[in-house]
Amino acid sequence: MTTLADTAPAPRPVTAREHLDHERSPLAAWWSDTLVFAGRNIEHIRQIPEKLLDVTVQPLMFVLLFAYVFGGAIAVKGGSYREFIIGGVLIQSLTFGMNGPATAISTDLTEGVIDRFRSLPATRTAYLSGHYVAELAGMALSIVVLLGAGLIVGWGVHRDLLPFVGALALLFLFCSAMIWIGTYIGLVVRAPDAVMGIAFVVVFPLTFLSNAFVPIDSLPKVLGYIAAWNPVSVVVAAVRELFGNPSAPVSLHAWPLEHPVLCAFGYCLILLAAFVPLSLRAYRIRTRD
């Protein structure tokens, strides 16, 4: 060691700058930045675990509420209500999940921290994709908790592997769509307090005016038609079909409900095609003055 030190030129102080990773491709840099932002959200949950209540305990309560409280009062033709309700509660919970990114993003925007991120050389869109990755992880947890609870109360999967994988793929797309809608809401509301109100106005009619909790045939005719075309109904029907759960026959004619799987994928892709670019645009507008 001493000989090396003697012959080598005097060492320069090493600066942080020399540890920069310039070799990475832009895509690798974007992914690394995305993970840093996602890690930030997960750190928030570590600090405030109550943040997870809405994706864990809340859906559980809905399962119990509908399976044991309302379950006796609602009859589903061709199967058990408990098998019927899980698909509904699942999609309802995931729809509610749009609150998460909406609140988180609108809070960031009202605090100074967004300026810090924007003054850093991180890839610009990584902030949004980081939120997306973290929220997706939260929703995955939600799905596991909910289906686990479903198994306990008497729900089951009655089809082969392929439809099951199809259901998971559909849930992934649906979660993605909900997160990007939530992201867009978070970027356009002016204060985090407003998120709850907007989410209720959007989420409540979407989830309750659907086949999630009651058969469509039990609704008045006009509401029945609205519910039949509601994307939530279509996704719920598709999930029931792919899991092999009863889906209560529908007597009124509604093309989406007659082809639920195809339509559900279509709805999700349309929502994504709309809300990802909308969010990116809103982010650009909101963070540039």
Binding site: A16, H19, D21, H22, L120
Partner: peptide, 24 residues
């Protein structure tokens, strides 16, 4: 307006900023 993340520790805040600067 101090632009640090209130829900993280001081150390984690700085590491996050370093990572977003693409430091190892």
């Amino acid at each position: 307006q101090a632009t640090v993340d209130g829900l993280m520790s001081a150390h984690k805040n700085l590491v996050m900023v370093g990572r977003l600067h693409h430091l190892t």
